[in-house]
């Protein structure tokens, strides 16, 4: 997923570490936001920032186990979420209300996450320096 044209040295940010939260709001297929959002998340790992991911609204479907995209003719990129740990991206927050409203439980998700309420999610967002939503 990395592109070959990174012309910034991620080690040259003067030791600044900011809290980045990437907010995933869309279903994994149907639009490209989830896939291109994940590409930003992976790039951000190279900058050694304090990265977390939030999953709200239809974004919780991005983490659904057993995605099968054969009939869609699109790549199933959901295994990438399991690889995030290897990039030291371990703070994944799922909004309880969004999950339950869609009939999902924690057992339906393909990675370990922290389930938080909408109010707790709002508190987490307030703590961030940078919030980018997809």
């Amino acid at each position: 997923m990395f592109t070959s044209s990174e012309n910034i040295d991620p080690d040259d940010e003067g030791g600044v570490i900011k809290k980045f939260m990437f907010v995933n709001r869309k279903a994994p297929y149907g639009t490209i936001y989830a896939l291109e959002g994940l590409e930003v998340v992976l790039i951000s790992a190279a900058f050694e920032q304090d990265v977390s991911l939030a999953f709200v609204d239809d974004g919780v479907y991005e983490l659904k186990k057993g995605q099968d995209t054969k009939a869609l003719g699109q790549k199933n990129f959901s295994p990438t979420y399991r690889a995030l740990e290897g990039y030291d991206i371990e703070k994944l927050y799922v909004e309880r209300e969004s999950m339950e409203f869609r009939g999902l439980t924690e057992d339906d998700l393909l990675v370990d996450v922290q389930i938080v309420s909408a109010a707790e999610m709002a508190d987490l967002m307030v703590e961030q320096d940078v919030v980018i939503s997809f």
Partner: peptide, 20 residues
């Protein structure tokens, strides 16, 4: 100009605000 996604992350690091 065309460049990589690192430019977005770097803007987040360097700027006081990143506005979407």
């Amino acid at each position: 100009r065309i460049s990589g996604l690192g430019q977005l992350v770097e803007a987040g690091i360097q700027c006081d605000r990143l506005v979407t």
